[in-house]
Deep mutational scan, measured.
Amino acid sequence: KILMCPEHETERINMYCELCRRPVCHLCKLGGNHANHRVTTMSSA
């Protein structure tokens, strides 16, 4: 099953924010609420 980002509906979730303990997409990481947070790949989470 492909998970889609709730904030960016057209983007797949492919990362996990370690600080917030939630999955995020690349747009969340690049310029969103998680820009300065440490993220890992979903396969490592």
Rank of each mutant, 00 (worst) to 15 (best):
E9Q: 09
M4Q: 06
A35C: 08
G32Y: 03
R22A: 12
E7I: 15
C5Y: 00
K29G: 11
L27A: 14
H8S: 01
M4A: 05
P6M: 05
E11K: 04
V24H: 06
L3G: 11
T40P: 12
V39H: 11
E18C: 05
L27E: 09
V24S: 02
C20Y: 01
L27I: 10
T41F: 05
N14K: 13
N14P: 05
T40A: 11
E18R: 03
E18M: 06
I13L: 13
A35Y: 07
T10E: 10
H8D: 00
R38Q: 13
I2C: 03
E9T: 14
V24I: 15
T10P: 11
C20A: 01
R22P: 03
N33Q: 14
N14R: 06
V24W: 03
T41Q: 08
E9A: 10
I2Q: 08
H26D: 14
N14S: 10
S43I: 04
M4D: 05
H37V: 07
N14E: 14
P23I: 03
A45D: 14
N36W: 03
V39R: 09
M4H: 07
M15L: 02
T41H: 02
P23K: 07
C5L: 00
L3A: 12
H37R: 04
C28T: 01
E7L: 07
G31R: 10
K29F: 12
H26T: 05
L30I: 10
H34A: 03
K29W: 07
K29L: 13
V39F: 08
R21T: 09
T40N: 15
P23M: 05
P6K: 13
M42E: 15
N36P: 11
C25F: 01
Y16F: 10
M42R: 14
C20W: 00
M42T: 15
E11C: 01
I13A: 11
T10D: 07
H37C: 11
P23E: 13
T40I: 04
E18D: 15
E7T: 10
P6Y: 05
L19Y: 13
V24F: 15
K29C: 09
M42G: 15
L27K: 12
R21G: 08
C5H: 00
P6A: 09
P6L: 06
M42P: 15
M15G: 13
C28K: 01
H26P: 13
A35L: 08
A35D: 15
S44M: 07
P6C: 05
E9L: 10
T10W: 04
G32V: 06
E11Y: 15
R38P: 11
T10Y: 06
M42K: 14
T40R: 08
I2G: 08
C17Q: 00
M4L: 06
R22F: 08
E7S: 08
R38W: 12
L3M: 15
T10F: 03
G31H: 09
N33E: 12
T40G: 13
C25M: 01
R38H: 14
H34R: 02
P23D: 13
M4T: 09
L27N: 12
K1F: 06
P23Q: 08
H34N: 02
R12A: 04
H8F: 01
T10G: 09
M4Y: 13
K29E: 14
E7N: 06
L30G: 14
C25P: 01
C25L: 00
G31T: 12
P6H: 08
C25T: 01
L27P: 03
L19N: 15
L27S: 12
T10C: 09
K1G: 04
P6D: 08
L30F: 05
V24L: 07
C28G: 01
G32P: 11
S44A: 13
I2S: 05
K29D: 15
G32R: 07
C25H: 01
C5V: 00
S43R: 09
E18K: 06
I2T: 08
Y16L: 10
S44E: 15
C28M: 01
C5S: 01
Y16E: 05
M4N: 08
S43D: 09
N36A: 13
R12L: 11
K1T: 06
A35N: 03
V39G: 14
N33A: 14
E9V: 10
C5M: 00
L19W: 08
C25Y: 00
A35M: 08
L30S: 14
L3Y: 11
R22V: 11
C17F: 00
M4I: 09
E11L: 05
T40S: 11
S43T: 08
E18L: 05
G32M: 05
L3R: 08
E9D: 12
E7F: 07
L30V: 13
G32L: 07
N14T: 15
M42C: 10
L30A: 15
N14M: 14
S44K: 05
C20K: 02
K1P: 00
R21C: 08
H8C: 01
Y16C: 13
P23Y: 09
V39A: 14
C20G: 01
G31W: 02
G32E: 15
A35E: 12
L19F: 04
R21S: 12
N33G: 13
C25R: 01
T40F: 03
A45V: 08
V39N: 14
H37M: 03
E7Q: 10
C28A: 01
C28N: 02
E9F: 03
R22Q: 13
M15Q: 04
H8R: 00
I13W: 11
A35W: 03
S44I: 04
T40M: 03
T40L: 04
N33P: 15
A45M: 05
G31C: 08
L19D: 13
L27Y: 05
E9H: 09
K29T: 11
L30K: 15
H26F: 03
E18I: 01
N36E: 13
E7M: 06
Y16H: 15
E7Y: 03
R21A: 12
L30T: 15
T41W: 04
C20S: 01
R22D: 05
M15T: 09
S44L: 06
R38V: 13
E7P: 01
H37D: 05
H8Y: 00
H34M: 02
A35R: 07
H34S: 03
G32T: 09
P6N: 07
H37T: 05
C5A: 00
L3F: 10
Y16K: 06
T40H: 07
A35P: 06
L19T: 15
M4V: 09
K1A: 04
G32I: 04
I13M: 14
H8N: 00
R38T: 14
E18Q: 09
S44H: 07
R21K: 15
A35V: 11
A45Q: 05
V39Q: 12
K29Y: 11
M4W: 05
C25I: 00
S43E: 15
R22C: 08
H26K: 03
N33H: 10
R22G: 08
K1D: 07
Y16R: 09
M4P: 04
V24G: 09
I2M: 09
T41G: 12
H34E: 04
N36T: 11
I2V: 06
T41M: 07
R21W: 03
I2A: 06
H37Q: 07
E11A: 03
H26N: 05
H8P: 00
C20Q: 02
E11T: 07
I2L: 08
N33T: 14
G31Q: 11
N36G: 09
N36D: 12
H26E: 11
P23V: 09
V39C: 09
T40Q: 11
M42F: 11
H34Q: 03
K1V: 04
E11P: 00
G31L: 04
R22W: 03
G32Q: 10
T41C: 08
C28D: 15
E18P: 04
A45C: 02
I13R: 07
R38D: 14
V39S: 12
H37N: 05
C28L: 00
H26G: 14
T40K: 08
H37A: 11
G31P: 04
E7H: 12
A45P: 12
R38L: 06
V39L: 11
N33I: 09
R38A: 13
S44G: 14
V24P: 02
C17K: 00
S43V: 09
L19S: 14
R38I: 08
L27M: 08
N36C: 11
K29I: 07
G31D: 08
R21F: 02
E18G: 07
C17S: 00
H26M: 04
K29H: 09
E9M: 08
T41E: 14
L30R: 14
E11S: 07
H37P: 05
N14V: 13
R38E: 15
E18Y: 03
V24C: 08
P6T: 13
A45G: 13
R21V: 12
M4F: 15
T10S: 09
L19I: 13
H8T: 01
K29R: 11
R38K: 11
H26V: 11
G31V: 09
N14W: 05
N36S: 10
C5K: 01
C25S: 01
H34G: 04
I2Y: 02
C25V: 00
V24A: 06
S43M: 07
L30P: 12
S43W: 03
P23W: 05
L30W: 05
G31F: 05
N33K: 12
H34T: 03
G31M: 06
H37L: 04
L19K: 14
K29M: 10
H34D: 03
G31N: 10
